[in-house]
Structure formats: C-alpha cells, structure tokens
Design a protein around this nucleic acid. Structure first.
Lengths: 140, 140
DNA sequence: GGAAGTAGTTACCTTAAAGTGCGTAGATAC
DNA sequence: GTATCTACGCACTTTAAGGTAACTACTTCC
C-alpha cells in the first residue's frame, strides 16, 4: 500500500538517522575520547608524568603508577585502542625483562591539544556552571 | 603497625586518585558532553535544524523531529541537564496548546564552538584514523 | 625457593546509561 | 465522544563500559 502513514515515515527516518549516527565520525571520536582513561593516558604521554612539561614516551608500568587507579586490564585496553587509531605507538625492547614504551604520534599530539581546549573551557567556566546548577536545584 | 606495605601505599594512592577524578571538572564535562544526544541538541540549537545557518530557538517537538531517533524521555532528560548547567534556557509560552522553546545561552554557544573544534579535528583526520585501523586490524 | 618486577590475558560481576512502552493533562477539531 | 496535539513522567528492560580478581611466563634478587 502506498498509504505511507505518519508512523511509518517516522520509523523510516529514525532508522536512517540512527544508521548515520552509528558511523558519524565526530560522534565516534567523542565516545572514544570520553573513555575513562583515554584522556588521562594521553595527558600523561603528552605532558609528562606530572602533567606539566613536554611529551615523552612512557613505559607500561610507569603509566600504571602515574594513573594510580587504573587496572592492568583497562590500561592495556585503552592503550590498544589508542594504538589502533594511530594516536600512540607501542615499542617493545628486548631488555632483560622486556620493556614496552608508548609514545604519542603526531596525530595523537594534535588531538591532545584539541582536547586540551575543552579542558580549558571547563576550567574557565566551571564556577559559572556550578552556580547555574545550584540555582536550578534551589528553584524546585 | 607502621609497616606500610607497598600494597597499602598503592591502595591509598588509588583512593586519593579516584576521589580526585570523581570531582575533576574536565572529566565531568567530557562525560556530560559525550552523552548520546547532548552534542546533537546543541548542534541543532547552535546551527539551525539543518546544521548550517545561525543559532535559533527551537521547540520541543521540532527538536524531536530533527533528531529523528530520540525518544521523548531522552530528549527531555538531555534538555533538563543542559538547562541545569546553564547552557540552554527553557521558555514556556501559554499559547493554545502550551509551546516550549529552548535556546542556547551565551555559555552554551561558547561550549558549542569549542566542541565544534573537536568535530573539525575528527573530520580532518578521519581518513588517517581509519587507515591506521585497517592497517592495525590487518596486521594481526 | 619465594618474592617481586616485567607486560599483560581471561573470566566474571556490577552498575549506570540508554531504549521501550504506556500514561497524563488540558484543549480543540471532527 | 473519539482522536490529536502539546510536552512531558514513570516503570521496566537491555546493553555495554568499567571494575575485580586470579593467572601466565620469564628473570633476577635475597
């Protein structure tokens, strides 16, 4: 039947919209970067263990120590996904106990600086936001 | 016992680190903004229904139509949290059936432009990233 | 010979975000 | 008098992210 009801049309639109969303590159990037340890790992690799200073390579166990709350599972999971995206490089060295170092690529560094702007926004406006929240919560 | 074992020290560090993380403003912002519909609502309000053009207020049902996949629940949930943060304003008008319009505040607009940079990054580098992913997946 | 350090993997469990479906309230149109 | 439009609210279910804990394999230190 050619009687495309409003409900049918909407379901159709919805399907196409969701299909678009699932491949939308910016949406996927955001979901990736918002992973709990992603920015922390990038921040550590991008600004040294104390989050000041210059980018430098770090070892697996060093990252584990700096990011005190991370489990080995989450650390390797995060590192592998970042490596898959070409944001960091993994280098294994055949020393006495094998050592593995991770380093930001140029691509990773450029993303890091972009994300940093978001961080700066949040630091610049956090007071404003919390003020709004308090006001909103008090109002009801 | 004063014998602070390495395990105890690590647990202590971890607790403090997690406490810090849970209040870290940038982390919280990122988690907020990464909500599935947050950026889409902001994008619609910030660039018109077609994601081009200028910021303009929109109605609840209009947003629901533009973001075809969103359920009424998620839409109002998203809108309320954005309103709570002072990023949008809600205005109810006592027309025949009540109409409610939402509009980006200045604060919301400034966040929108910041997030837009992330979007531009992802669009500029998406090919590079997918190339890395293919290479990585092929390697194993 | 047992602990500790190297870099992880595997299986299981918890929880919070998102999706689904139905109800509501007042008013108007048919 | 039934249906539709407005803007939601509530309860239930699903799903995926993250956390916990235990185990691997090799080596050196004490």
């Amino acid at each position: 039947m050619a009687t495309a009801t409003a409900a049918e049309k909407k379901a159709d639109e919805k399907a196409r919209y969701n299909a678009f969303l699932s491949v939308c590159p910016s949406q996927r990037l955001l979901a990736q970067v918002a992973g709990k340890w992603v920015t922390l790992v990038m921040s550590a690799l991008g600004s040294g263990p104390e989050c000041d200073g210059d980018p430098r390579p770090m070892r697996y166990s060093e990252l584990g120590r700096v990011l005190a709350g991370v489990s080995p599972k989450m650390l390797s999971q995060t590192l592998r996904s970042l490596e898959r995206d070409g944001l960091i490089t993994r280098t294994a060295t055949a020393t006495v106990p094998v050592t593995v170092t991770y380093e930001l690529t140029e691509l990773g560094l450029s993303l890091h600086t972009t994300v940093r702007q978001l961080k700066e926004w949040s630091e610049a406006h956090r007071d404003e936001v919390t003020a709004h929240q308090d006001q909103f919560d008090a109002a009801r």
